[in-house]
């Protein structure tokens, strides 16, 4: 009964959405509003404006830096939210599930691949403002690497690696870097979130921001994984 009702609702909604979406300009044609208006300006501005030739990075870290600030705040908020709501040590109704040991093949492969993955992640983060990639993407790779490592070596090795206080600083590094950059913009250029003026300083700021986003993102991913793991197993 309930599911039939939901089905009717969803079908009606889908029909409405189909009507709306099919009226959108067809994708792929270069002379539509999407490409002619704001985006065209970003592309016409040239390499100097917005700090970098990679326009996606320019949009993220310069034109729409406030959005990206909000974004790293969302990750950070989610991370402390996870730490706040989890039930670590709380009551449980069933015994925890057993950990499945990792096979030696997987273990060896992870150990073998670690330096390469780490190198690739760093490359994505540092070169992200010129080439495709960037802090978020590199951070995800780095975070995935940490999760792999915790599977191979056991989560406790990873957990013990950093002091709790230091860990909180690492997790907070992305929003804090943005605050610093925003203040630097206010001091040097006169606008919150503006990138500083000479080209080399701007590039320096971009790389620092990307590094902060990358490491902060990796720390957040690892934090999500470790707290889930802890909640499930003890």
């Amino acid at each position: 009964m309930r599911s039939a009702l939901a089905l009717v609702l969803v079908v009606v909604l889908a029909a409405l959405m189909m009507a709306g979406v099919s009226q959108l300009p067809p994708p792929g044609e270069a002379d539509q509003a999407v490409h002619r208006h704001v985006a065209a300006n970003y592309l016409a501005d040239g390499v100097e404006e917005g700090g970098t030739g990679n326009r996606v990075t320019a949009v993220l870290l310069d034109y729409r830096a406030l959005d990206t600030y909000g974004e790293v705040v969302v990750i950070f908020a989610a991370l402390i939210a996870v730490l706040l709501v989890r039930s670590a040590g709380g009551p449980r109704t069933q015994p925890p599930p057993r950990r499945v040991p990792v096979s030696p093949v997987v273990d060896q492969v992870i150990r073998l691949m670690t330096p390469f993955i780490a190198l690739f992640a760093l490359f994505m983060i540092i070169e992200g403002h010129v080439l495709p990639g960037g802090g978020f993407q590199g951070g995800v790779v780095l975070g995935a690497l940490m999760i792999l490592l915790s599977l191979a070596l056991g989560p406790d090795r990873l957990r013990g690696a950093l002091h709790t206080g230091a860990l909180f600083w690492l997790r907070a590094v992305a929003p804090l870097a943005f605050t610093v950059s925003a203040l630097a913009g206010l001091g040097l250029v006169g606008w919150w979130f503006a990138l500083p003026e000479p080209g080399w300083m701007r590039e320096f700021a971009l790389v620092l921001l990307e590094l902060a986003i990358g490491f902060g993102g990796a720390a957040a991913l690892t934090g999500f994984f470790l707290s889930l793991e802890e909640d499930i197993h003890r």
Partner: peptide, 22 residues
């Protein structure tokens, strides 16, 4: 210039809280 501050100030203080006061 206080307008962005009304956003950045509480958020930054909130981000710092767990690191400073754990």
């Amino acid at each position: 210039h206080l307008l962005p501050l009304s956003v950045v100030l509480p958020i930054t203080a909130g981000v710092l809280a767990p690191a400073l006061f754990h």
